[in-house]
Amino acid sequence: MSWIDIGALEDIPRQGARVVKTAHGCVAVFRTLDDAVFALSDRCAHKAGPLSDGLVHDHKVTCPLHGWVFSLETGQALGADQGSVPSYPARVEAGRILLDAARLTAGATA
C-alpha cells in the first residue's frame, strides 16, 4: 500500500469528520471518541447524504438526512436497513492521518 498523509489527527474534532476530495467524489474521514480513524465514501447508500455531517457515536455514524446508521469499521448499514458504502484503509501514525493513495485514486470500485 502507498500511504498518503492527508492531515493531522487534531484537524478533525473528536466524534466528528472532515472530507477529502478525490476525483471520484468525497471521502469522509472520521475520528471517534477513542481517537480511532476511519474513512468511508461520503455518500450514504440510501439517498447520497453527506455522512461526514452525521453524528458519530461509538464506531458508527448516523446519516444526517434520514438516520441510516453505518459501521465505520465495515461500511455496512446497521439495524433494519440494507446496504453499504465503500470503506477505505486509514491509520494514524505519529498524530498524522494516512490513507491508502492507490485506493483513493482508483475510486470506489476498487
Binding site: I4, I6, I12, K21
Partner: peptide, 10 residues
C-alpha cells in the same frame, strides 16, 4: 475539505 486529492488523480 481536509485535503484535495483531485489533482493527484489527474
Amino acid at each position: 475539505p481536509l485535503a484535495d486529492l483531485t489533482k493527484e488523480a489527474a
